[in-house]
């Protein structure tokens, strides 16, 4: 197992280097002169030279690339042109907001998706199966931003049940410790605030959860169907074991690998979907951070945020692969 992890980590090195390279080249791919675009047409030649030096465009690209890489390895993500603060300092609160939202969404997606899939497989061709699978099909095709708007319209505007924007009660802001507000409010014992934080999570969380939920439900169903046809399950049933235990324990255990793979893939996808959800719900996460940075042409922020998300994405995929191996071996010895 250890040597497998080691091998996987070594394999990752060229991919990570390539990612850094692509992100590094972004600014050089801008048509025209980036410094000019940032500073404007009437910038003085001195200002442009200074900006070029700041962006590292005054040096050959390979020199600059290694400098950039060295900086990143030391945790230097550049400096925001908008706030003139290090991106590394600014990024965490945004990233934390996104992580909280994404976790909330994936948990909803897993709980509802897996159960819906199991029940659908259990009662194959029942009305529940049909409705669930039609909903799942629609869910897969759902533009997340439309779903967000629909949710806002129905739950926040027409019925005023849920807050429309933000992640906390503005008049009673959460005192940030970790910036993961669920944890922060728990640490401070502020259950009233925790309740508010949860309320703010619901709409964006469900919007973000829909697509992975649909995919997980479909995958669970097809994987379960295959397992339930196997002799092993038939035997268990013939032995007169309770159907509930047969389904949820024996069958599910054997169907779990493809489901896990899909969940892992979807967790990565959530990071992409978060950008859209965050714009609709004014969620102060990394997606909105990037969105604002694009409007400001704040390239260091765009570059570093993309790099950080991609890094997390790769890591999630790695963890999923490793878990896969782990569960696989256990099943073999079971």
């Amino acid at each position: 197992m250890l040597s497998y992890i080691g091998r996987r980590l070594i394999q990752l090195v060229p991919v990570l280097l390539g990612m850094v390279f692509i992100v590094f080249m972004m600014i050089r791919a801008i048509p025209g002169s980036p410094a000019q675009i940032i500073l404007g047409q009437q910038a003085t030649p001195e200002a442009i030279a200074a900006m070029n030096a700041k962006l590292g465009l005054d040096q050959p690209w390979f020199t600059q690339f290694f400098k950039y890489l060295a900086g990143i390895l030391q945790g230097d993500l550049g400096e925001s042109m908008r706030t003139r603060l290090p991106v590394a300092d600014e990024i965490w609160p945004h990233l934390a907001a996104t992580i909280e939202l994404a976790f909330f969404a994936i948990i909803i997606a897993i709980i509802i998706g897996i159960n819906a899939g199991i029940i659908s497989a259990w009662f194959q061709n029942s009305w529940f199966d049909y409705i669930a699978m039609v909903l799942a099909l629609v869910g897969v095709s759902m533009p997340i931003f439309w779903l967000g708007l629909l949710g806002q319209w129905v739950f926040a505007i027409e019925f005023s049940w849920l807050p429309t924007t933000g992640r906390e009660q503005v008049r009673d802001p959460v005192h940030a410790i970790t910036n993961l507000y669920i944890i922060d409010t728990l640490l401070q014992g502020r259950f009233d605030q925790l309740w508010q934080v949860m309320r703010h999570l619901i709409l964006p969380g469900i919007a973000l959860a829909t697509i992975p939920m649909a995919i997980i439900a479909r995958m669970t169903r097809s994987s379960m169907l295959e397992v339930m046809r196997s002799d092993y399950i038939r035997t268990a049933r013939a032995k007169g074991q309770k159907m509930f235990w047969v389904v949820y324990k024996h069958a599910f255990k054997n169907a779990v690998i493809p489901i896990l793979t899909v969940i892992g893939l979807q967790m990565g996808m959530l990071l992409g979907g978060a950008i859209l959800t965050e714009t609709i719900f004014a969620w102060p996460g990394i997606g909105r951070y990037i969105y604002d940075a694009i409007n400001f042409r704040d390239y260091p922020v765009i570059q570093s945020s993309i790099l950080v998300i991609a890094f997390i994405f790769v890591m999630i995929n790695l963890i999923v692969d490793l878990l896969y191996g782990l569960i696989d071996s256990r099943i073999k010895y079971d």
Partner: peptide, 13 residues
Amino acid sequence: SARLNALIAGEID
């Protein structure tokens, strides 16, 4: 309109 909705919802005064 989002701002007005926030007012109606009591998120702002």
